[in-house]
Amino acid sequence: MADFNWGFFLELLVSGVLIGLMYSLIALGFVLIYKSTDAINFAQGEFVMIAGIIVGACAASYGLPLWLAISLSVGFMVLFNVGLERTVLRPMIGRPIVAIIMATIGLAALLRGAGPFFFGAETRPLNLPIDDAPIIIGDHFIYLNPIHLLGAVAAVLFLLGFGWFFLKSRKGVAMRAVADSHQVSMAMGINVQRYFALAWVMAGVVAALGGVIWGSLLGVDTQLAIIGLKVFPVVILGGLDSIVGVIVGGIIVGVVENLAAGYLDPMVGGGTKDFTPYVLMILMLMFKPYGLFGKPIIERI
């Protein structure tokens, strides 16, 4: 290790942090729903995909301006999630967690079929109006992708916003109360069902933003849903109901997979990027199942 390439290492590290923050953005939608409704959403990646596909289809194929396409997509996600909460998730309140997991897996299948069914299966570009020449920092020539930077900044802003929302605002406090106990919050005069709907709407909006950012990076088609699988290592590492945990978990996953891709891939022949976050997650589950910042669940009969 005499000639350890610090520039290479730093580049992997920095872009890992940025990508990790972009993962946090996706995982945030998951945590929002879990935190306030105790429901597990296995379709978060598909939400991101469908939002991205709508933006891509509106902007690239129907020629709408980008801001209109994005607002259409956000509007669709809001309506869709309100409807979803009404028809599927509300009747399932109080059912075993396995049932809710399965329902969202079904939802994921439905969305994966519906996206290309209604908007066509081709991969569309999604161009944000920013310069995509790499930004070069320092003498070590660290290249930064501006979209990564934008994604990371947007993610941090959103995460800070939601952190403030949950800690300080009246609605956020009510939401935490709902998450804690449905019955008690009903007795305190909180309209529980409205907050459930609100949680799903927020997750939809976050997914739409994630769809725009990730879509501009990868192009939009059904493959976009695969980043939904990165959500699980992120939330398990950080703790399921913690917004700080989402940030930390996202950064850990981003850095670890980037370093693995940089150093391990040449040794074992590729694919470690999708694999290492899950190994990390299994270790976490074995030793500290509630994550770094999660709240342990105490069980009573």
Binding site: V88, A99, A103, G106, A108, L110, G113, P116, F117
Partner: peptide, 24 residues
């Protein structure tokens, strides 16, 4: 062929949700 596969996914997902909600 492509549409058939997509249609299958849509119905499949819808059926899972339908059974879970209506007939667990």
């Amino acid at each position: 062929a492509q549409v058939t596969a997509q249609f299958r996914l849509i119905l499949f997902g819808a059926l899972i949700m339908f059974f879970l909600v209506v007939e667990p």
